[in-house]
Design a protein around this nucleic acid. Sequence first.
DNA 1: TAAATTTGGACAAAATTTGACCAATGACAC
DNA 2: GTGTCATTGGTCAAATTTTGTCCAAATTTA
Lengths: 106, 106
Amino acid sequence: MTQFKVITTFGEHLRILRETAGLTLKEVATNNDIDISLLAKIERNERQPTKQWIKKIAKYFKIDETELLNEFLSDQIAYKILDDESDLSILKAAEQKIKYRITNNK
Amino acid sequence: MTQFKVITTFGEHLRILRETAGLTLKEVATNNDIDISLLAKIERNERQPTKQWIKKIAKYFKIDETELLNEFLSDQIAYKILDDESDLSILKAAEQKIKYRITNNK
DNA sequence: TAAATTTGGACAAAATTTGACCAATGACAC
DNA sequence: GTGTCATTGGTCAAATTTTGTCCAAATTTA
């Protein structure tokens, strides 16, 4: 049987972590200083948490902070491309620009 | 002699277009329904024009609308990556997500 | 140095995002 | 059915971010 790494959104990932741990919104929310409803919205990608909070929740679920943060950030890029109705070539162009700006130090 | 396509920002490109045409901020601004100072800021990437305005200015300089729009959009992605201090792998991750969401229709 | 051009600060207005509250809905046990 | 716990989703004020305008300062050009 082949294993698939399912591509999820940041919010869905949080939800999976929570459900896998068998926890309710209330439990996770109160332990992470956030309103229940706000956590629910974050899990549905209707609100964007702060980076600080992402680090906190990563610790809470004992997963890598940077990885979770990257998942959040790549999600944001993906959403932006999709709702600008840009095509994927935009990403290549952006990559060129980033490389250029890094090597020519801004 | 080799030709280089210099990678510029959206704003710099606008400025180059204007200067190549030998026009002042005032001339371009008044012909495109925008404040002089605002145009200056756009050229310095301190303000983001609307997509509508980008189409208008593309027509004005007789260049391809979509291409200029893409230049603007890729700039935005590049800026975002740079000031989040993300690394380039974010782009690959974002690409995966976009492809996934497109094929699984959202 | 005068005029034209460009820069950049200040700031109110507009737009967007957030966080909190709470009623409605759903799910499950009794 | 009723009650309880969990989740959803709407509303809305507050906070934050972005925009556009005005204008004075700085720079360039003639």
